[in-house]
């Protein structure tokens, strides 16, 4: 029987576990899955920095810890600044011969609030200074840890406790901040979007990111059954739908060149993605039409960027280091 499963997909993944049992994420938490996969790809030789947020709370419930590697929780606004300090100190110690030259992965993992809102200044500074670290935003599209308040990463139309839907409001009235574009605008060597519903893609991206020197950024969409009001068993499905409907396309910006990882001849209608989430249940057909229009436009723009870059360098290959 087991021979039949010799190509059973999980066998293709390494057995390293650096984010292990003992965490207290909600049932169907996309974040927990994403972090497990990220650290499988990164390996043991890694230091993780995370700001305040769900990840901090769920990964270290007294008396347990889910971390199999060094982890530092810092204040809400400065994960990237602390990563800067770690990288700088290693450089100094290596220069003085007080530390071996073995490279260490420094990975900051923050939520959307700690990245796009309060942490943006520190992140922008660290990317501009060019430190050798990887920043991963695990984006569940609101402040879930403090009770589902909106963030600048909450999509248009989503109901949260501080952007409540009602007679006078459709929920969040602004569009989701495009963090990937902000990161890419810093001209860093590697930027990508990812989602744990595409585990191999996510792990491959982490590995690829770590192969570059300098600042790297991955924006990872993680479904949150608690905050999005969806059935816990739909977490992976929702991630796939976000990609298939174009709500969250998976792409990379490698040294300034856009590359689409999953292309679809025709996008699924956005309502497939919206209708299984409670946070969108108040939306009327005309609101959904508006969202569809925005998704179509964004998709068109992304495809345009990708095709321009393909024309410019048809034989482009990944350069590695």
């Amino acid at each position: 029987m087991s021979e039949k499963f010799s190509v059973y997909v999980p066998n293709l993944v390494n057995k390293d576990e650096n984010f292990v049992q003992g965490h207290r994420a909600c049932q169907g938490c996309g974040l927990a899955l994403a972090v497990r996969l990220i650290l499988k790809a990164a390996g043991r030789n890694t230091i993780v920095v995370s700001p305040t947020g769900c990840l901090e709370i769920i990964s270290t419930p007294y008396p347990q810890s889910a971390w199999n590697l060094p982890w530092v929780h810092v204040a809400f606004e400065n994960a990237a600044a602390v990563a800067t300090g770690i990288e700088g100190a290693f450089k100094a110690l290596q220069a003085k011969g007080k530390k071996d030259d073995k490279p260490v992965n420094i990975i900051a993992i923050g939520g959307d609030g700690g990245t796009a809102d309060i942490g943006l200044q520190a992140l922008s500074g660290a990317m501009e200074r060019g430190h050798d670290f990887l920043y991963i935003c695990v984006d569940n599209e609101a402040y879930m840890n403090t009770g589902i308040q909106r963030s600048s990463s909450t999509p248009f139309g989503a109901s949260t406790t501080t952007s409540p839907s009602g007679q006078a409001s459709i929920g969040q009235v602004t569009a989701k901040k495009n963090m990937t574009a902000i990161a890419a605008a810093h001209n860093i060597p590697y930027t990508a979007t990812a989602c744990p519903s595409y585990p191999f893609d996510l792990m491959e991206k982490v590995k690829r990111a770590l192969s570059y020197r300098g600042p790297k950024y991955i924006h990872c969409l993680v479904a949150c059954p608690t905050g999005w009001s969806n059935a816990a068993d739909l977490m992976v499905r929702i991630g796939s739908l976000a990609v298939e409907t174009g709500a969250f396309p998976l792409y990379e910006v490698i040294e300034g060149k856009y590359k689409l990882n999953f292309d679809f001849p025709k996008l699924r209608p956005i309502t497939d993605y919206l209708k299984i989430q409670g946070r969108y249940k108040h939306l009327k057909p005309k609101d959904i039409e508006l969202i569809q229009e925005k998704v179509n436009n964004d998709w068109k723009q992304l495809k345009h960027k990708v095709s321009c870059d393909m024309l410019a360098s048809p034989s482009r290959e990944r350069s590695g280091e």
């Binding site: 609030g113 009770g147 406790t161 501080t162």
Partner: peptide, 16 residues
């Protein structure tokens, strides 16, 4: 305001 436990109810209520 900005969400922070244990004060978030104030902002949630005022957002309504």
């Amino acid at each position: 305001g900005y969400p922070i436990t244990p004060s978030s109810e104030i902002m949630e209520h005022l957002s309504n």
